[in-house]
């Protein structure tokens, strides 16, 4: 039983709005155009419903524990948006923690998560963080697709 049984009741629309506000500025700093970290084709979009909850939990942790920390932002306008996203992800993590029993991690999700971390580790840390931030729309679209219940908020 996938994410649908462990719904994240979060206002994705506001997170998407925050990201749209910085997407151009962030992606402009990404100089490695032929490289991807979330690699949608193999990793995320191949996920089965059973693995959605675990994958969501793992990717939230990837961003909260790694990406947002590795990225150093000086522009207050961009900093505010990233802070908004980071704190929203923190809230989503807490919501998911309440579903711990329903959020089993099978090998497929563990392997997919390792691919993402390996992709990240192959790049210089600042470049990896910028690229992952620029790919947030991939992750947000994936959550939206697997989590239709909350998008109405």
């Amino acid at each position: 039983r996938g994410l649908r049984t462990c719904l994240i009741s979060t206002n994705l629309r506001l997170i998407e709005e925050s990201f749209r506000g910085i997407k151009q500025a962030i992606q402009a700093k990404d100089t490695l155009q032929n490289v991807t970290i979330l690699s949608p084709s193999e990793t995320l979009h191949g996920m089965k419903a059973l693995d959605v909850c675990c994958m969501t939990k793992n990717l939230l942790a990837f961003y909260v524990d790694r990406v947002f920390k590795d990225h150093q932002e000086l522009d207050p306008r961009i900093l505010r948006k990233i802070s908004s996203i980071a704190n929203s992800f923190l809230y989503m993590q807490k919501t998911l923690q309440q579903c711990q029993r329903l959020c089993h991690c099978r090998q497929e999700a563990t392997n997919a998560t390792r691919i993402i971390h390996d992709n990240y580790a192959q790049l210089e840390v600042r470049s990896a963080a910028i690229k992952s931030l620029g790919e947030l729309d991939i992750f947000l679209a994936w959550i939206e697709k697997n989590h239709q219940g909350t998008s109405a908020a």
């Binding site: 947002f68 802070s83 980071a86 704190n87 923190l90």
Partner: peptide, 13 residues
């Protein structure tokens, strides 16, 4: 936010 106080306590926005 809680994120900054947990992970980047030197950052104030």
């Amino acid at each position: 936010g809680e994120y900054e106080s947990l992970y980047m306590s030197h950052i104030w926005i």
